[in-house]
Amino acid sequence: MKRSNEPIFWSLFGAGGMLAALIGPALVFITGIAVPFGLIFKPDTMSYAHMLALSQNWAGKIFILAVIALFLWHAAHRIHILLHDFGVHAVTAVRVLCYGGAFAGTVIAAYTLLMIKA
């Protein structure tokens, strides 16, 4: 029996799922509701200067990359197996589209973050 390479995708899926479950709703609340409506946080919390400062910091870069990339890998795997369950069996095409998309998103996010100089 050939060992499956699925653990690579499943681990990214699992990490993304855990991150999404832990901070996803909080991020939606903070960035989508609290800050725009001026609740809890100062109105300039998400100002350009603050966000730039976050992405100039290495810990900030890693956080932003993790949120973007792992969420994408999670979604890619979920959509991939969901399509399979629903009877779309163009396995290679679906894989290339889903995982390719997540990979492209990861590379673009990483490149963009690296380009932001302090």
């Binding site: 029996m1 050939k2 060992r3 499956s4 653990p7 197996i81």
Partner: peptide, 14 residues
């Protein structure tokens, strides 16, 4: 050896 293959645990989509 079977469990770790595509025919094993990884054939499941939960």
């Amino acid at each position: 050896e079977l469990g770790y293959a595509d025919e094993g645990y990884w054939g499941c989509t939960a």
